[in-house]
């Protein structure tokens, strides 16, 4: 049986009421942004090793079970390995003959290629982890309010911030619903004799293709219904809206942000200094 719900957690929110859940969403968003920038700047294994303790600390404080996050990332990690495999084979880098470990036609494995793929993999995992963690610990409303406040100034140059943010938030809300739908369709087809868990990887992937069309159709139908429902609830764009909940940042929130910035600076700069 195709079990997705437990294996894909992107976009889920797990309310454990931890200090991280209670943090100001704006601060969390900025911290995530800092992490994202850092993930592009850090380019050594040592740097990523330095990042790891902070991520472990965040995981611990958030009280979201680590097993849940790991299990929920299986599909993603599998996909990543698949991509890195090709990265290694096709992009050896501009290297001298001596660093090739294996070569066959245009396929090759070089030490530089392995190194680049390793760094790339860590970079992607880091990116994935911080964004997943942001969503696991921030409710949709806080996320919306935070994004709207941060990007609010853009409204002066006529960027429809409220609407864009709502589109983003609804997209996230639909992830678990879609996953449920894929499972339902897969079950319906399994009942008619389509085996989703047999055969090689390519056969399986091709069978999943059969789910694409029905998923698109039901996606459009749902989007249509939701739009109608939002209209009947008087949604007419962000301009007219007021907010029930307000965000408050505390001194601790700012300290946390400072910690994140300092830590990332260290992970970026220290390895070079140490090695030189």
């Amino acid at each position: 049986m195709l079990e997705l719900q437990r294996n894909v957690i992107f976009g889920q929110f797990v309310d454990t009421g931890s200090p991280i859940h209670k943090m100001d969403a704006r601060i969390k968003l900025i911290a995530t942004f800092v992490f994202i920038v850092a993930s592009f700047l850090i380019d050594s294994f040592l740097g990523f090793a330095l990042v790891l303790p902070l991520l472990a600390l965040i995981q611990l404080i958030s009280r979201v079970p680590a097993g849940y996050v790991l299990r929920g990332s299986r599909f993603f990690l599998g996909f990543l390995v698949f991509i890195l495999f090709f990265q290694v084979l096709f992009y050896p880098g501009e290297v001298p003959e001596s660093s090739y470990l294996w070569r066959w036609g245009f396929l090759s494995i070089s030490t530089t290629g392995l190194y680049t793929a390793g760094i790339l993999g860590l970079r992607v995992i880091f990116l994935y982890y911080v964004t997943t963690m942001l969503m696991l610990t921030t409710s949709l409303v806080d996320l919306t309010n935070g994004l709207e406040l941060i990007f609010g100034p853009l409204q002066r140059i006529r960027v429809p911030v409220n609407e864009l943010v709502l589109v983003f938030v609804i997209a996230i809300k639909f992830v678990p619903i879609f996953i449920g739908e894929v499972e339902r369709l897969a079950r319906a087809q399994t009942a008619r004799g389509v085996p989703f868990d047999e055969g090689g990887a390519f056969k399986r992937a091709r069978r999943l293709g059969r789910l694409l069309v029905p998923i698109f159709i039901s996606g459009f139908a749902r989007a249509d219904l939701l739009t109608t429902a939002m209209n009947t609830r008087s949604y007419r764009g962000g301009r007219y809206r007021t907010k029930l909940r307000q965000l408050h940042s505390t001194a601790t929130d700012w300290l946390m942000l400072l910690l994140v910035v300092a830590w990332m600076l260290a992970a970026w700069q220290l390895p070079d200094r140490l090695l030189s």
Partner: peptide
Amino acid sequence: VVFQDPDDQLVMNRVEDDVAFGPENLGLPR
């Protein structure tokens, strides 16, 4: 109006937040 399938009309993911969605659209004070 309330439709057949609640999954198609609930917008936010927490109960209170969703109930607040309508009044927020009316631009009422907090």
